[in-house]
Design a protein around this nucleic acid. Sequence first.
DNA 1: ATGGTAGTCTAACTA
Length: 256
Amino acid sequence: MKIASWNVNSLKVRLPQVKAWLAEQAPDVLALQETKVPDDQFPVRALQEAGYTACYTGQRTYNGVAVLARSAPADVATELPGFADAQRRVIACTVAGVRLINVYVPNGQAVGSEKYDYKLRWLEALHRWIADELAAHERVVVTGDFNIAPQPADVHDPEAWAGSVLFSERERAALQGLLAGLGLTDTFRLFEQPEALFSWWDYRVNSFKRNRGLRIDLILASPALARACTAASVDLEPRRWERPSDHAPAVAAFEL
DNA sequence: ATGGTAGTCTAACTA
């Protein structure tokens, strides 16, 4: 089972790229973030023609998440329990016996800002939700744009980024709470990886060309699935395409 | 020093 996660920064703009990437990589599941599309405008038919059934929760201009799957997603949930939020940032569903939780973690803007506080509170609610899902399901995968780089090796210049949003102590501690705390595994780090392989590069100042990136797009696995993981990577190719998303897809394969 | 680009939508926000 091949599972991928991609922040597309507008599904409307990136639909041709999503279709091309699906045809090329043939994942069983593609989790999307920042679709920026209301539900009544979601491209259901185009994706069905590509061989995928979608579940989605979106809004105009901002946020929006979706899961595309070869077999129809079941038991869909679109709310973070105990955290009333108009922003469409989570979707969970079950595909082929795997419980998928797809998240678009708040960016946080700047350490100490209101949005940073919202990010930390949001992550606490996510922690509680994942704990419940892990208690109910053996096979759990959490995909998404976490807007947090886990380790120094996931940041092009960790000293310059220390203390900044996306790499500050409290955010990293919240992410560690999901990893060490809940027993999830960052599948990317199960395998030997090239140095400086990232998943997001700011559109500005030629960041991609200079590889000034961060690895913030993650695929986390419960113990049973971590044992079944056979490969994990980031596919840089779509970031090289014309008019790209600022993120590249993260990919993980499982032998089930 | 507080930029630079992209998306949504024409003013300003979010990232």
